[in-house]
């Protein structure tokens, strides 16, 4: 039984593996940057922390010039997180390296790195209570088409220090940039101020549930080019694939981005029960009742024997 389940899980997961760790060269990478003559030129050598898993997706290093662009490569510690019956949350480490790093040491703080870990978007309803004849009851609601179920930001510095709001908005960094589109054909009659209230309530409540997290000093450089960020996934994280986006910035300018994916899926007994409950709901109900009757009969047999 167990082997069968494992084989089924593997079979399901294999096609998804192919799309892992694909580098997405961002449009910003094409932007030519003025050379920074004041910076000491980085000695040309292989970056110390190049992750082996992503080795094949970089072109060979260009020859040394004065205008060597810095790019970022990254990966996650666990590309596939298993939700089993002992799942109590986990920690995802996003690590990466700055190619052609020009900073002399880890402490010099020339670069800023922002890591955004985003969960699968899903439909979300936000409701507002008001007092009707002394009783608090939901009276208004707004339905958003797709809101990230989970959203974590880790950065080397507070976001407002490392870049101007315009850049953050363009790059989808920050809670204010979380995409919340109303469902189509939604006639609310709400003012924009009301809608903003609803949106900020979503972020506030998600933060309270531990699903929207911000770590202002969560990314640490541990070498001239190597950095890491650890992000906690809480036990109540909604199941589904996660996307990790890594942004490299210098002096408020976006240099490079990188995307990695994390799979989050049920395994073992959790997978069996969840599939059972959602694919064969009727039989799952019958099974639950059978479990209940069996437990009751077993208990009464046990206790009758002990009482005699």
């Amino acid at each position: 039984m167990r082997q069968w389940v494992c084989a089924a899980v593997l079979a399901l997961s294999c096609p998804a593996m192919v799309e892992f760790a694909d580098a997405q060269p961002s449009p910003q990478q094409k932007r030519t940057r003025p050379a920074a003559p004041a910076q000491p030129k980085a000695p040309l050598q292989a970056p110390p922390g190049t992750p082996p898993a992503t080795a094949d997706q970089k072109p060979p290093l260009p020859p040394a010039t004065a205008d060597l662009r810095e790019t970022v490569q990254a990966d996650v510690s666990t590309r596939s997180v298993a939700i089993t019956s002992s799942f109590t949350g986990t920690e995802i480490v996003v690590f990466g390296a700055v190619d052609n790093s020009r900073q002399p040491s880890a402490e010099s703080g020339l670069y800023d790195v922002v890591v955004v870990l985003e969960g699968t978007p899903s439909r979300l309803v936000s409701r507002r209570k008001s007092n009707v004849f002394g009783i608090w009851i939901n009276t208004q609601s707004v339905t958003f088409e797709a809101v990230p179920s989970y959203y974590a930001i880790a950065s080397t510095r507070p976001l407002d220090e490392l870049a101007d709001p315009l850049l953050l908005r363009e790059s989808d960094i920050g809670f204010e940039q979380v995409r919340m589109n109303l469902i189509k054909g939604w006639e609310t009659g709400l003012t924009t101020a009301d809608l903003a209230e609803f949106k900020s309530a979503v972020i506030r409540l998600k933060q309270k549930e531990g699903l929207y997290v911000q770590e202002q000093y969560g990314v640490v450089f541990i070498g001239r080019s190597l950095f890491r960020a650890s992000i906690e996934l809480p036990a109540n994280v909604p199941v589904g694939p996660l996307v990790a986006r890594v942004y490299l910035l210098r002096e408020g300018q976006l240099l490079s981005t990188y995307t990695a994916r994390v799979k989050l899926e049920r395994q073992g007994l959790e997978w069996v029960l969840h599939t059972f409950a959602f694919e064969y709901s009727f039989w799952y109900g019958v099974f639950t009742v059978a479990v209940a009757v069996g437990a009751a009969l077993l208990a009464s047999a046990l206790f009758r024997r002990s009482s005699h």
């Binding site: 507002r128 179920s149 309530a201």
Partner: peptide, 18 residues
Amino acid sequence: SLIAEPGDLYSIATGKLA
């Protein structure tokens, strides 16, 4: 819980039945 003013007037629900 019905008559006391809730700590947060807003609530969110996700998923298929939300």
